[in-house]
Design a binder for these strands. Sequence first.
DNA 1: CCCTCATTCATACGTTCGTTTGAATCATAC
DNA 2: GTATGATTCAAACGAACGTATGAATGAGGG
Lengths: 209, 209
Amino acid sequence: MAPPDTRTQILDAAEHLFAERGFRGTSVRAITDLAKVNLAAVGYHFGSKAELMAAVARRVVAPINAAQSAGLDRLLARTSEPTVAELVEAFAGPMFDGMRAGDENGARTSRLIVTIICDPAKEARSWTGPAESEIRGRFQTAFQRALPHLTEGELWFRIRGILAVAAVDRIEVYNQPGSAGHSTPGGEAARSWAITFLAAAMSAPPTPS
Amino acid sequence: MAPPDTRTQILDAAEHLFAERGFRGTSVRAITDLAKVNLAAVGYHFGSKAELMAAVARRVVAPINAAQSAGLDRLLARTSEPTVAELVEAFAGPMFDGMRAGDENGARTSRLIVTIICDPAKEARSWTGPAESEIRGRFQTAFQRALPHLTEGELWFRIRGILAVAAVDRIEVYNQPGSAGHSTPGGEAARSWAITFLAAAMSAPPTPS
DNA sequence: CCCTCATTCATACGTTCGTTTGAATCATAC
DNA sequence: GTATGATTCAAACGAACGTATGAATGAGGG
């Protein structure tokens, strides 16, 4: 009953290729070639290419969502109110975990998230499931309490800013490797840099009308 | 010699569809159908689908690059050193211009830029040409002077953060329209919100080692 | 041993894709 | 009017795509 190997081999290969060339840019044949399984195995185990993508997305996003949720729970269980910096850490931090310096796999994971978020297809919206937006809503109310002077619109804008920085930050590095001698920042540094950057951004005073 | 009409009709239709469905998600036939021109016109006027995309990208990015360059020139021509906020305004501001509130075309433009930046294909890197990275380099040295305490790596990370926010900020709005009653921010508000957000982020103290 | 059921396999189907072709059409200059 | 060069057109090309099919294969229980 338990999947022997083929299923995860397909998931691994699909994650690799989807991250590197996007959903539409990756053919089922390329996946099965890389996974060294038969072409029809995708249809057998997942039903269709889109459902395979959904499975890949779930596998990647699930631990991030879990870490975000746990982090927020921990902050809310305390007696003192969480600070903006703590909320940023709990929200953005997990997106950088699992992609430590030199971890090629981590870079791919990050790239895959970008692919999912940026994909213009409507199907892409159903890849990650509703858990993600639910967690986002919980963080929104937490941020709202920590930043009561912000309008809902501007707060929402800033939360999207966090997502943007967390998702896109590796694109440039990935796309033009070793371009102008910019040493690729390890995931280690990227994580703390992002927290600094985003905590300051979130704490900014509201924009005058 | 001057292109009569077909050429720009194709460019308009291609800009529309590339922004909405991405490069790979848009077929040449869909473009020529929308433009109401013959299928072969793309090959005749542009050579290939990829070269058409490059033309579309150039047409969209050129005015942004020009505005960025002019803004930086204006700041550097003054006697006083430009502030971080001024540099952010000059760098990020033009990315939000031309997409004022209710301007459907502006939202598409923004969406197209995201498509270009996020596209995983290697060809996408040649779509905008070298002008963009050259301007980015000029801003980098200007930021370096305004933020002398930042390491080159962290500064580079923050500049990428600006690009991320400017590029991705409209994705969510575009993808789940009227999701949870979040009033879509007009381009007007988004522009000033982004400047506030990014100026604070850029001005953050350096991350401790 | 053989039946069963899950999995793997080679192969094919129908569609859509980007691109090409060669004739038809048009404007313009002689 | 007719020749010329640029443009538009209908049609087709081969390739690659996602998916479906039915036979082969393998392991485990009767």
